[in-house]
Each structure stands twice: as C-alpha cells, then as structure tokens.
Design a protein around this nucleic acid. Structure first.
Length: 1095
RNA sequence: GCGCGGGUAGCUUAGUCGGUUGGAGCACCCGGCUGAUAACCGGGAGGUCGCAGGUUCAAGUCCUGCCUCGCGCACCA
C-alpha cells in the first residue's frame, strides 16, 4: 500500500481528463472486466443509438444509468461484458440523406440510383460517430466501442434473416393487405409506434352526405371527416340493433351557413339518437326502423365511374356491422374499402370491390372524376364538397338540393408523418406481418417475469400494450434497411432465405434452371439493390423475385441479443450463455420500441424472454419542462458541463435530481450546486487528510488502532458510515439510486465534513505522534476509501484519484463494501448464498446508540447557538455554565459540547422544575378511540389546565377523569417550557410514546474572567484572518502589537493564549491610554475597540 | 375518450400507517462561525399542499368529481 501524497487544489476538469489518459494507458476498462474473470457473468445489453444525430445531455443520462449498474455489479464481483452497438438502418437515415441531396421523392432516389443512395446512407450513419465516441469516453461510460455490433454489418443482417426465417417456418410471417397509415411523401407506411410520434390536433371539414336510395325517394345520411374517401365509397354500414328514423323536412332551416341543404318534403334516414345533433331542419318522423331492416337497400354511387362494380352484388348497398355506434356522425358509416381498417375488413367480408381511387402518390387515380383526377387528395376537400352540393349532386341523380346535407368544421387528433409533418392517409397496401397475436399469451407471461423499474411501466404501460397486441407490420417500402429475405413467384409461391449459404445455393439452383443471375460470393452485400438482382426459382422452375421491401429497423435492434454475436453462424455459445440478458436500460419512449421488439423477436424466434431486468428512464426535459428534441433546439450540450463542473458532478447531479423513472428537468445550476456541495467538499476532506498524512508519513498498514480503542467521535463516524453504506446498498437493490446518493451526499457533507472533520481538526494539527492522531488518520482513511467505493459506480473520476492516492490501487477493481456475491461458488446474476455474501462485506461496526447520542449532541449544539441568538450573546464570549436537563447520559460528550457551546463547564441537572414548567398536550392517537366525538373537548381541557402539575399528578395516580374519560399517561404528552429568566431551549427526542425531552440551559452572567477570555478569542480570530489575507504560511511566526479602548482586563493567561494561537514570536499588549498608530487594523466588539498590527 | 405518472415556498424537491407546528436545498435579508471549502451554523421572510366536495374527532396523506402538465393508448366512420 502506498503512503498518501499531499493533494493539490481541485481542478475537476483537469483531474478528469488526466485520469482518462491514465485509464487509456492502463486499459483500465478491460482490466476491470479481466479482474472479474472468475466472477459469475452479469449480462448487459446496450441499446444501440443512431449515430446520425449529435448526442445530447439526455443520452448522457441513459448512459450514466447503464454505466452505474455495470460498474456496481463489477465491484460486486460479477463479470460484466459491455459490447457497444450502433443502429444504422431506417427512415431517419434516409430522410437525412434525402434532405441533404434534395431527393425528396422515390422517383428522385431511383433516378439518382439506389446503390448510390444507399452508399450515401451508409456513410451518413457515421456522421456523428466520433462525437458519440468522445462523449461516451469523456463521461466515462465504459463500453466496448472498438468491437461494437453494427446493424448494417453483413453478419448482423444475416442473423436477422435467420430470425425472420424462423418466424416464416413457424407460420408467423405472412403477407397481407392491411390498411396502414401511409405517408405519400415518404412513400412508406408506418408501424403504430411510429404513428404515435405524430398525432396532431387539426381542424378539417367534415361532411354529412345524402346517399340517395335507388328504390325510394329518400336518402340515407352518413358522416365523414375525410371527404377525399367519398369517391371510394362502396357501402354504408348500420348497426343492426340501432334505431333509425325516416324523417321528412317540414320547413326551411333558418340561418343556414355553408354549403348543402335540403328542401321541404325531402326524406332522410339516420339514427334516432342523433337527429338533434345532425339535423338543422324541422322534420316530422315518418317511422322508426331497426337497423337490420335497412340492410340490403341499394343506393346510387356518389361518383358512378370511380369504382368498377365487377361482380360484386353488395356494392352500394346497406350492410350491417356491430361496431357501428351512435356516439358520432349519423349512426351510418360511410365505407370506403381501401381507406379504413374497419372498412377494409367489412368490405372483404361482404364482398365489396377492393379498388383504389387514390394512388401511392396520394393523388386521385385517373378515371375517378374529371375534376379530381391527378390531384393530391388533401387538396380536394372543397372540390368534393362543391361537386356534392351541386344541384342533383355529383352523380346527377340526387335531389335538386344536392347530395350534401351539411358541412361542419371538425377538430380532432389526426396522425401525421413524424418526419415530414404531412397528414397520413389510411391506405390499404401490400404488407408483411409478424403474427404477434398468435403469441400474445407468451408475451404476457414473459413480461410477468421481468423485473421492471418502475414496476408500473411493466404492469401498466407495457402490459397494456401487450394485452392489445396487434400483428407487427414489419415491411417498409424503402431502400436503406435489412432487405426482406422473401422471394415470391407469380403464382404466389414463397421462399424465405435464412443465410448467405442458402442464398448461394438458391442462386445456384436458379442458374442451373437457366435463369441468369449475378455472382453471389461469400461476402455478397446483403443490401438493396444487390439482393434485388437475384432471381430464384420455385419447385416448378418458375422465377421468383424478391419482395421489394426492407424491414422495420426496430426489427434489427430487436435481434440484438443474438445478432450481435452473429448467432447462429458464430458465437452460439456466447449467445446461449447470455440469454436472456440480465439488464437493459433505456428511456421510457422505448416501451413500444426496443423494449417491445426485443421481447417480440425473442418470443417468436426462441419462445424465451429477452431480458430479466429493465430500467425505464423518464424523459429529460429542458428547464421549462419541455421534451428535449433536435427539432425544438433545446438540447443541452453535455460538454458545457463536462468542461465546467466535470463529468463526475454532471453524473451525480443526474442521479440525485430525482428518481430515474421520473421526468428530469435538467437544470444547469443544479450541476453547479452538486459540484460545489458534494465534490468540492469531498475534495477538501480528502485534501485535509492527505496533506497531514503526507506530512506525518502516515501509512494505513502500520500502527493500526483497533476501532474499539478509538475515541467516541471516530467510532461514531465509522458507525454512521456503516449505516449509510447499508442503506445505500439496499436502495441500489431497489433501484432507488436517487435516495442512495442523496443520503450519501448528506453523510459526506453533514456528518463527515461538518462534524467529524471539523471536530477533528485540532487532532491533526498536533505535531507530536499520538495514538489519537493515528486513530483519526486511520478513521479518515477507512471512511474515505469506503465512500470512494460507494460513489465509484455513479461518479468514477475523483474517487479513483482519491482511492489511488490513499491505497495505491484503482477503485474500479475494488470490492463492494457490502460484499462480492459475484465471486462466490455457484453464484449467478440472480441468486447467491446470502450468508456467504454477507461474510465478504467490509464495514466497520455499527453502534446505533452512539449514533443516537451524537445526533442529540449535535442538536444540543444547535440549540445552544439558538439560545445565544435569542439572548443576544455572541458565540465567542464564553458562558460560565451550561446545564443539560433530563435526557440520556451524555457524559462522554461533555467535552465536545462545552467546546461547541463555548461554556466553561457542563453539568447535568435532573431537576427540571428549576428551569422549566411542564405543559400537557393531548395524545390524539390514544385519546381518540376512547373519547370519540368528545376528543376535542377533552383535549382542550387538558391543554387549558391551570395547574398542569396537579393534573399530571392526578393522571399518574389514576384519578384523573375528564368528561367521563379516564385519562392515563399514554393519553398525554409531556412538554416543557422555560421558566422566565432562563436562557434555555428544549428539544424532543424520539416519537410518539417513546418521546422524551431534553433541555439546555445557559448561564448568561458575565465575570471578568469570561470577558477576558471572550476578548482574547475575538482578537485571535481577527489576527488569524489577517494572517490569511497576508497569505502567510501556517508555520510562520509574527510580531504582534495590540491597543484597546473601553476594554475589560485581558488576563495574562488569555494574552498567552493569543500568543500561542497566532504563533507570535513577540507580542506587545499596550496600556489603554496609548494611541494606536493610524495604519493599525481595528475592530469593534460589544463596544470595545481593538487595534492591532501584525508584522 | 381510456390508462399511467405528476401539480407542495420564486425555483428544485422530501413528506412512511391519516395525528393537530408540512421538512430540506438554491436564491433573498439579518446575525454568527471559520487558518478546510465555492463551505458551515442560527434567525427571518416566503405555503390556499392544483380546485371543489366527501369520509373522519383529525386530511398534503383516504374517497369522488373537476382543472392542469407530461407520457402512453385508442378513436378519428
């Protein structure tokens, strides 16, 4: 073990950057893992960030919590491998490149060349890689960035292909048509987790439309908020059990605004419950009808040429659907098969024609209507309204008032593209799905086994998501991503390719069958357009082409547990040994993202859970409480703090600012505060110890002083250390890192710095060797090294410097003070022998009585200062006497108290009544059950008692009865108040029945000796301050001259005391009538003027 | 609309089983202490515990409704 060197002044940033360099030289990260080579593994999985955006402070938070747990578990003896990862596919990358290269449509991309485009994407992905790396290293997130997994790597893609093939072989993968939210601008449909990113409240025109019946001079009213879907209308849905009415218009409506209308005598059909909401005319009800009797009625198509009837017998008739309600609209649902999920399902079931009126570009298809063809649908709302409201309506077969009844502005949330902000269209498209609904029960079961922090995310948010699980739409009509490895022939045969080898053999088969193919080498790039070029053959030798999709990039990251090892092609053992992983940690926004896709892939491929513990972090908000995002420009740059307060303070602040799962309002001042309070204090404690340890040649391994032989103060701080560490650990176990760290900070600042070190200062000033000084040094050594270990997972820099200087060893290979379960025989990440683990703990003995006594002493010291403030007596003027009245025996602490209180002597006085009178207060908890409704009256009797002592005596004697209630001692609390004329104060110790009181009384009388002593202290203090401003060495001596006016006598012994304290070589105390020179310093205290000169 | 989590001093927050005087820190004011600190200590000022009801002898705490913020889900015909 090394002997401590003196510590310098703190420069946190320089300290950290120098240490980073040392870590790099020593390969400290790898060494910390290697030091646990015999430890049980604890498996961590890094959620891959996208490196095409600049890292912000919110990324630092997530990385801090990842690092914290990994470092903690390492100190507990586990081996924690941490492989980095990068998410490199997906729409965000494409959008970035599209913007930069001005390729804002699919046509533009294809004209530019898909290979060129994808090459640009491949490069763009790494734009901020170095920024990420620098941030990661600077904050000391220990993760292997030299061998990361990268989702665009061929090996990674191959594992994804393999996974998809497992699903395919299990029948979990299917091609379907599904109505999906679709963005015509990006040309892609979105999965629900992407849609959720873009809901916006918008006001749009909604319309009530008349559907003119064929066999009757009446119209059915239906409502829609998307007029652009009306040309695609092929059916009307009614609730079979809903009551509808035929209503005839009896008079013109007044104050009509907007388009549409109806004439007197027109007949409309709608749900009875919605007449008031919908109709603006007075009507008479002709009859009420059940929905089911409307079924089958035919009506005139609104746009006769827009959709071909083909062989449908049900097109443009009334259909029944049990999901139709009367909460909105007219109780009749306009059905456009291709533009709504319910519509599509109903249309398929009822045999409606499935025909698009809108193209993939979001524009009406030619032949829909001359005024609409080729126009973007969202710009056609008014045209549709105009066409409908023309006389006879858009089909010329409507009433002369037109087919529009009303229009109404409608405010609702509507999904928008989260990248381009365009409104999404619900659109029926070809798509590939993973049948998650088939494994729903397993998902729920696996989720039950996950330890979530906080638990309500798992049970509530995530559980709710799983209970409503939908099939996962995994295909994207995009370019940059893992290609969907499915080839499909004209007749619908399909082949899913699960590896490069399989691709090669299929290509060979195709070539053998006479189909030309480009070469397919071992290192064939598994991206578009390379893989698009391969044509395979089915069993009959017919060509099969690849389905032109890439996969949802969430599928990539969901494959991370095995794809990072290139399982099953390589790394099989590594994967088997690490599945499911022990710990993942990401922002709560990953609930439907990574948290879900990990579980989804793992369940469908392996029928296993993916992770055992998941820490879900709250969002990071800016100072105003807004979410930090690139688009808002409110991202805090972590370097602002790395370069000012350092990474230690930044990390500690983030952990102590709140529970990890709560939203964190990131406050730059908070980092500053943490630095000043926690780290500066810790450094100064350390500096105090290290400077004297170096001066005295202290060696922690020599001249040990057994704990039981150390002074009370030492045993106290060691016990506090043990208590704090124990709580710290159990808070870690319960994920309450914020509580753990707040308590430890309290310990360092309050107990260690403001009491132990302050009280111990003089012990180390002593030049001579002494057991007491040694005891203090050993104690400081033990406390500091343990605090370093506890803090190391959270803030790894300063504590390593301290630990290294005190012990010669890095803290990051040290043992966790509460034990090293990871090193135990047979231990796993989840379980170990508790007794054996406890035996590896290393903490000093606890003495809770001592802690309680010291707490009381400290409280009395504060009470003393309060008394002085109230009595107007300055702290430096001693009191002759202090009395402690009642309370436990504090004899061991009288020395401390006398010094803190600045009294000449402490005495214990048992007679409370000498200084105090008693007061009785009701104890409601005991009294209420007995007195019930009279409790307040009884309580007032007790409080208002004129002679509380007599009342107390009566209660003690058992003869006290108030309002028929027998009052016992447990029904009252004894309180004490000072009698007149005493400077005293009382504190309560304990709670409830255990409560007792202890009082402190100070003697306020002055004597010449006391005045002299007080004056000496004031003079000393001023001289010391002067020495400091003169920047004098502590050992330097001075010559002193003193002049005084209106001063009490300064006794010889007090003069001598000043001389000693201020290290005077020579001192002159001048008579009071001598005038001080003009350049002497002076001060006044209690009407006394003192001049002094230091040289 | 539904679900989850919030709303406590100017700001950041603690508050256990309901117990009568709601704690801290920052900032502010006054005083003290200091040869460890950018610190510390005492005091002061600052609170409609989101609002309104209810239960109870007693509500920041439990119940109901509402307002509001964040997040999520759903609907959006």
């Amino acid at each position: 073990m090394a002997q401590p060197q003196a510590a310098g002044e703190l420069d946190a940033v320089a300290l950290e950057t120098a240490l980073l360099e040392a870590w790099k030289q020593e390969n400290a990260f790898q060494a910390s893992i290697d030091s646990r080579s015999n430890g049980a593994p604890f498996i961590f999985l890094e959620g891959p960030p996208t490196a095409n955006g600049k890292p912000g402070i919110h990324h630092v938070v997530a990385r801090a919590y990842k690092d914290l747990v990994c470092r903690w578990k390492t100190m507990e003896g586990f081996q924690v491998q941490r492989k980095g990862g990068w998410d490199t596919h997906g729409l965000p990358v494409e959008i970035e490149v599209q913007k930069r290269m001005d390729l804002m449509s699919n046509e533009a991309i294809e004209a530019f060349g898909m290979d060129n485009f994808n090459q640009a994407c491949r490069e763009s992905v790494w734009t901020y890689e170095s920024a990420w790396r620098e941030m990661t290293e600077r904050m000391a997130y220990w993760v292997d960035l030299d061998n990361p997994y990268v989702t665009l790597d061929n090996n990674y893609v191959e594992s994804c292909w393999w996974a998809l093939k497992q699903m395919f072989d299990k029948g979990l993968l299917y091609r379907g048509h599904k109505v999906l939210p679709y963005c015509p601008q990006t040309g892609t449909s979105y999965s629900s987790h992407e849609v959720a990113l873009g809901y916006k409240e918008v006001e749009e025109p909604s319309v009530y439309v008349k559907f003119k019946l064929v066999d009757e001079d009446a119209s059915i009213l239906a409502w829609t908020t998307t007029p652009w879907t009306l040309p695609g209308n092929v059916g009307l849905a009614v609730g079979p059990e809903v009551t509808y009415v035929r209503a005839r218009v009896t008079e013109q409506a007044e104050n009509w605004t907007g388009a549409g209308g109806a004439e007197v005598g027109e007949v409309v059909i709608l749900a009875k419950d919605l007449m008031k909401e919908v109709l603006r005319h007075n009507v008479e009800i002709i009859e009420e009808i059940q929905g089911k009797s409307l079924v089958g009625m035919a009506y005139e198509p609104l746009f006769p040429d827009a959709v071909p009837r083909n062989d449908s017998t049900t097109a443009w008739t009334v259909l029944e659907a049990d999901w139709v309600t009367t909460t909105d609209g007219t109780g009749v649902v306009h059905t456009a098969v291709m533009y709504g999920e319910d519509d599509y399902n109903l249309g398929m079931a009822a045999g409606l024609p499935a025909h698009h009126t809108v193209g993939m570009d979001g524009a009406f298809i030619e032949g829909t209507h001359p005024q609409l063809d080729g126009r973007y649908v969202k710009e056609c709302d008014q045209t549709v309204i105009d066409l409908l409201s023309a006389q006879g309506g858009s089909n010329g077969k409507g009433p002369s008032s037109g087919l529009l009844y009303r229009e109404k502005a409608y405010l609702h949330d509507y999904p928008h593209c989260w990248r381009t902000d365009h409104p999404l269209l619900y659109y029926a498209m070809d798509s590939w799905f993973v049948r998650m609904t088939a494994v729903k029960e397993r998902l729920l079961e696996f989720n039950d086994g996950v330890e979530w922090a906080p638990d309500w995310v798992g049970e509530g948010r995530f559980g709710e998501w799983l209970r409503n699980v939908k099939d996962w739409a995994i295909s994207r009509e995009r370019y940059w991503g893992t290609p969907l490895p499915v080839w499909r022939g004209e007749n619908g045969e399909m082949k899913c390719v699960g590896s490069i080898a399989e691709l090669q053999s299929e290509v060979a088969k195709a070539v053998a069958a006479g189909i030309e193919n480009p070469p397919c080498p071992d290192d064939v790039d598994l991206h578009r357009p390379i893989v698009d070029a391969f044509t395979l053959v089915d069993e009959h030798g017919k060509p099969m082409h690849r389905e032109p999709f890439v996969m949802d990039c969430w599928f990539d990251s969901g494959c991370a547990p095995f794809a990072q090892w290139h399982h099953p092609f390589d790394g099989g053992e590594t994967f088997e040994a690490s599945s499911p992983v022990d710990y993942i940690c990401e922002g709560v926004d990953q609930t439907r993202g990574w948290f879900y896709t990990l579980l989804a892939v793992s369940t469908t491929v392996f029928d296993k859970p993916a992770y055992k513990r998941c820490l879900s972090l709250g969002l990071i908000l800016d100072a105003e409480g807004k979410k930090m995002s690139k688009s808002k420009g409110n991202i805090v740059d972590p370097w602002d703090h790395f370069n000012r307060e350092g990474a230690d303070a930044t990390r500690w602040y983030m952990v102590t600012a709140g529970a990890p799962w709560n939203p964190l309002k990131f406050d730059s001042n908070g980092v500053r505060e943490t630095y000043a309070k926690m780290f500066l204090t810790l450094w100064n404690i350390y500096k105090f110890h290290a400077d004297y340890a170096a001066l005295d040649g202290f060696d922690p391994e020599h001249n040990p002083v057994p704990v039981e032989q150390r002074p009370t103060l030492d045993r106290w701080i060691l016990s506090r250390l043990a208590s704090t560490a124990t709580n710290y650990h159990s808070d870690f176990v319960g994920w309450n890192f914020h509580k753990a760290c707040r308590d430890l900070e309290e310990f360092v600042v309050n107990d260690l710095s403001n009491w132990y070190v302050r009280r111990s200062r003089r012990r180390l000033w002593d030049d001579a060797e002494s057991t007491d000084k040694l005891a203090c040094q050993h104690t400081l050594h033990e406390v500091l090294t343990t605090v370093c270990k506890l803090m190391a997972p959270v803030s790894p820099f300063m504590v390593d410097i301290i630990h290294r200087n005190l012990t010669g060893e890095t803290v990051h290979q040290a043992s966790w003070p509460l034990g090293v379960p990871g090193t135990l025989e047979g231990a796993t990440a989840d379980s170990w022998d508790l007794d054996a683990a406890a035996a590896t703990a290393n903490l000093p003995p606890q003495d809770l009585d001592l802690e309680a006594s010291m707490a009381l002493v400290r409280e009395l010291a504060e009470v003393g200062r309060r008394i002085r403030v109230e009595a107007g007596r300055r702290q430096r003027l001693p009191c002759a006497q202090g009395w402690i009245v009642a309370g436990p025996d504090l004899a061991d602490f009288h020395d401390i108290l006398a010094e803190e209180l600045n009294v000449e002597a402490i005495e214990v006085e048992q007679d409370l009544d000498r200084f105090q009178r008693i007061e009785l207060a009701p104890n409601f908890r005991a009294l209420a059950p007995k007195a019930r409704a009279n409790v307040n009256a009884v309580a007032n009797e007790i409080k208002a008692s004129q002679d509380p002592e007599a009342l107390l005596a009566a209660i003690e004697a058992g003869t006290c009865e108030i309002m028929g209630i027998q009052i016992e001692m447990s029904d009252v609390e004894l309180k004490r108040a000072e009698r007149e004329g005493f400077a005293a104060s009382t504190v309560q110790i304990g709670q409830g029945d255990e409560a007792s009181h202890i009082s402190l009384v100070l003697d306020m009388n002055d004597t010449p000796a006391l005045l002299s002593k007080g004056l000496a202290r004031d003079i000393t203090r001023r001289i010391q301050a002067k020495r400091k401003t003169l920047n004098m060495e502590i050992e330097a001596t001075i010559d002193l001259e003193i002049w005084m006016k209106d001063a009490p006598e300064l006794f010889d012994e007090d003069q001598q005391w000043i001389v000693n304290e201020t290290r005077c070589a020579a001192a002159a105390f001048h008579p009071t009538d001598l005038q001080a020179p003009a350049d002497a310093d002076s001060f006044e205290v209690d009407g006394i003027t003192v001049w002094f000169a230091v040289s």
